[in-house]
Structures are given as C-alpha cells and as structure tokens.
Amino acid sequence: MTEHGPADRLAALIGADTLDEVAQLIRRHGELTGDASMDLLREREERAADAQDRQTADVFSFHARLLYRCRVVGVAETFGEIRGHPVGVTDTWEIALAATAAFEGGGGGTERAHAEEAWRRVLELVPYEADRVSPQARTAALDGLARLLFSRLVTDTDPEGLALDEVVALWRQAVGLPAGLSEAGAAGVVGSLWRVPDITTTLLVACFYQNWRQEGLQPAQALRRAQIWVRDSTNGDKAQRFPDIPEVTRPGMPALHRRLWQKAQPHTGPAHWAAFTYTGM
C-alpha cells in the first residue's frame, strides 16, 4: 500500500496488528504526531460519536491520545508505559521540576546541582533524532537546564566545570527569539518554546491579559497564574470565563456530550501550558 498523506498513514497506523508495528510507523513518520493528524483523528472521533458509534469513536480517541503522548515524551517512553516498563521520562521530568522549584524557592548549590542532573537525564532519555520532530520534553528540558546553568554562571565566583559556550548554545536553542527581542529593547516578551494549538494560546493569552491589566499582577506572575488556570480548569470553567469564544463554548453540542465535555480537563499536559515563558523586567 502506498502512503500519500496523513489519512493514509493514519489508516496504516490504526490497521497495524501489533504494538511494535505501531511504534515503527510512528518512528518512521514523525509527522503522525503533528497537528494535522491530531485534528483528523478528533474530527473522525466526533463524527463517530455523532453517529452513536462509540466503539469507532474510542478507537480514534485512543490513537489521538497515543500520538499526543508520543509527541510529548517520545515513542520509547510512551510504549514503555504501555508495556509497563517506561524508560523514565515522566518520572525524571517530575523530579527535575521539583528540584528546580526547590532551588528557585531559596535553595542553594545542592538543589541546583540536583535540578541540573535531572534535566540532563531528561535530555538523555529523549535524544534528538534528525529524521523526526524532537519530543517537546526535550525543548522544555533545554530551557530548564539553560536557565540553571545561566544562574550558576552569573552567581558563582568560580563556576567549576561550566563552559560559557554550553550555556549560550542551550540558551539559543531554548529561548531564542524572546531573548533577542529583550536585547533589542522590549520591556518584556511572552513567547513559547514550541508550537501550541491556537485555542490553547488564545485561552492562555486572554487569561494572562486579564491577570496583568485588570488585576494588576506583574507580568511574570500573571503568566504563571494563567498557566495554572489553563492546566487545571475544566471545559465548563473555560466556557464560563470566555463565553464569547465559540471554540471554547462549543455551541450546538448534544446535551449528553456536553455534560461529559464540561467536566473534562483537556489541557493538563505540559505541552499545552509549559511552553510559555516571560522574558523581561
């Protein structure tokens, strides 16, 4: 069978007989984890649900979640989780976030060293592969590590074992445009480390603007609260706060689907909210 586009490759994916075949297809065609495939699967899931074909809808839903997980933490971690033997990206990610929070909350060199080690471990677990899009976990890990190394560079009188070129290289990979705009004179820049779906960006920016301009929070704090809200809020919460955004309110949805939909939290994954950073004063 000749595969010409997302629809053909998704058909091959869904028709695969074994997990190994599924993993091989995703590795071979990294674009399967892209937005086009996700949108196509969600569209077909909705059509099947509207037709009361729950079994088919579940198949599309499962593959959408599978591909999304592969995009966030990589193919090896995803299929390791399915088989009960994850390679450790998720656990190491949580350790790195906790260690970073401990350092930023007033910790010293020990906490910073623990965080650096954890972010380097994440990078080892999701190595860059030139033939496909690198998992989003890698980009966030680059940013986390770069910020810690930069902190060590500017605060330590003798940053042993730290090369300036490593900090610069990591910072360019992870921060890039926001740093450049700040250097050009912008008071502050809100940017993203990877591509985020339009609706998620709309929600986060609208929430950020309310927190900043209406509640008077500092930009960094306003962004942090917006990220937490986008992460933790349900579809119902989002529709209530932003009733003028059709993509949020989803008018015309059948009553039964709406009751289930209102309780869902679709943006809990770091890929939706962790990409956004504030650079500036």
Rank of each mutant, 00 (worst) to 15 (best):
Asp131Val: 11
Ile228Pro: 00
Thr33His: 01
Ala206Thr: 05
Leu162Ala: 14
Thr200Glu: 02
Ser151Asn: 08
His29Ser: 11
Gln210Asn: 05
Cys207Phe: 07
Leu13Gln: 01
Arg112Tyr: 04
Ala187Met: 07
Leu19Cys: 01
Arg259Tyr: 06
Thr33Pro: 00
Val189Glu: 05
Asp131Ser: 13
Thr139Asn: 00
Gly252Asn: 09
Ala140Gly: 05
Gly84Ile: 11
Gly34Phe: 08
Thr110Met: 12
Gly269Lys: 06
Thr155Ala: 03
Leu66Ile: 06
Ile199Ala: 02
Asp20His: 09
Pro251Gly: 11
Arg132Gly: 04
Gly180Arg: 08
Leu123Gly: 02
Asp17Cys: 10
Ala206Ser: 07
Val154Ile: 05
Tyr68Asp: 08
Ala174Glu: 01
Gly185Lys: 14
Leu193Arg: 15
Gly105Ile: 15
Phe103Cys: 07
Met281His: 12
Met253Pro: 00
Val168Gln: 07
Val248His: 01
Ala51Met: 13
Asp17Gly: 15
Arg213Pro: 00
Asp237Thr: 11
Thr100Trp: 04
Thr277His: 03
Phe79Glu: 01
Trp212Asn: 05
Leu177Gln: 12
Ala226Gly: 07
Leu181Asn: 02
Arg132Glu: 00
Ala255Met: 11
Leu123Trp: 04
Val248Leu: 13
Trp194Thr: 10
Arg225Pro: 01
Ala49Gly: 06
Ala186Ser: 12
Asp165Ser: 15
Ala220Asn: 14
Glu45Leu: 15
Gln227Met: 09
Ser37Gln: 08
Ala16Leu: 03
Glu43Tyr: 14
Ala7Val: 15
Gln240Val: 10
Cys70Asp: 03
Val167Leu: 02
Val59Tyr: 08
Leu217Gly: 05
Leu164Asp: 06
Glu104Ile: 13
